Computed example of a mutant assay.
Amino acid sequence: MSNPIEEGKKLAAYRAVDEYITADHKVIGIGSGSTVVYVVERILQRPELKHIVYIPTSFQSKLLIIDGGLTLGSIEQYPEIDVTIDGADEVDSDLNVIKGGGACQFQEKVVAEAAKKFVIVADFRKKSKLLGTEWTKGVPIEVVPMTYQSVMKSIDTKLSLKPLSSKLRMAVNKAGPVVTDNGNFVIDTHFGPIQNPLALLREIKLLTGVYEVGLFCQMVEKAYFGEENGTVDIWTK
């Protein structure tokens, strides 16, 4: 029996690839997450896209590129990207996004900012009016390990928006915290509904020890959401 959520992700990913990636492109950014699997699947179904260089945002997307026999590149080699397609944990009505549930927010943001066009693919569960309403696990804040205690204290005392909860993300199958691809820790901070994500992002980034924040503001051109009924809902600026 087919899974409507997975079918939705697939539809959204295929549509985004078909509308945004052409044979004229030279460099494409490949994001992280479950929906991005279908992005690569669709790329592999289109032989005219095989010559393009693909830049990963995580170990997961790097493997997808390599296993698919596509050309792997790095941001050091290709600092300018035509299009980046990525998943999301939550998207608000202004196309602000929470990302970092998979602890890849730093690479994801680097590759997104390097792109001329940044596109999101997700399923309908990721839609929300305000960030922090549907995704309640918190905004992922990547921090240098030695600073995690001081950053957590600063989050509690120095921000205009007071957090409802803030905790160090712990690994599931090992004793200790999650360690990012950059060797850092992640603090998940839930603020409740976020009225002004950009202002919050700027405040958090100013805290000493913060490496990156999983708030992606004023970056997304278009978001594709796979619906349960087999349609794709498209949000644009």
Rank of each mutant, 00 (worst) to 15 (best):
M1H: 09
S2H: 13
N3K: 13
P4H: 02
P4W: 06
E7M: 14
E7Y: 15
G8M: 09
A12L: 04
A12G: 04
A13N: 05
Y14Q: 06
D18P: 00
E19D: 10
E19S: 11
I21A: 07
T22N: 11
A23C: 00
A23M: 06
H25I: 05
I28D: 02
G33F: 03
T35Y: 11
V39D: 03
V39C: 13
V40E: 03
V40D: 03
E41H: 08
I43H: 00
Q45M: 14
L49V: 14
H51G: 03
Y54T: 08
Y54L: 09
I55G: 02
T57G: 07
T57V: 13
Q60C: 01
K62D: 02
K62Y: 09
L64I: 07
I65P: 02
L70I: 09
T71R: 09
E76H: 10
Y78H: 15
P79C: 05
I81S: 11
V83M: 14
V83Q: 08
A88V: 03
V91M: 08
D94N: 14
V97F: 00
G100P: 09
G101Y: 10
G102Q: 05
A103R: 05
K109W: 12
V111K: 06
E113I: 06
A114N: 11
K116A: 11
V119E: 01
I120T: 04
A122D: 06
F124P: 01
F124E: 08
R125E: 05
S128A: 15
K129E: 10
L131E: 05
L131P: 15
T133D: 12
T133R: 12
W135C: 09
W135T: 05
T136V: 14
T136C: 07
V139M: 12
P140A: 03
V143F: 07
V144Q: 08
V144W: 00
V144S: 04
Q149D: 02
M152G: 14
K153T: 13
I155W: 04
D156G: 01
T157L: 13
L161H: 11
K162A: 14
P163Q: 13
L164N: 11
K167P: 03
L168V: 06
A171S: 15
V172W: 01
N173E: 15
V178K: 03
V178T: 05
V179M: 14
N182T: 02
N184C: 04
V186C: 07
I187H: 10
D188G: 10
G192S: 08
E203Q: 15
K205E: 11
L206P: 00
L207K: 00
G209I: 01
G209V: 02
Y211C: 01
Y211P: 00
G214C: 04
L215V: 09
C217V: 15
Q218W: 01
M219D: 04
M219V: 10
M219C: 12
K222M: 14
K222R: 13
A223L: 04
G230A: 11
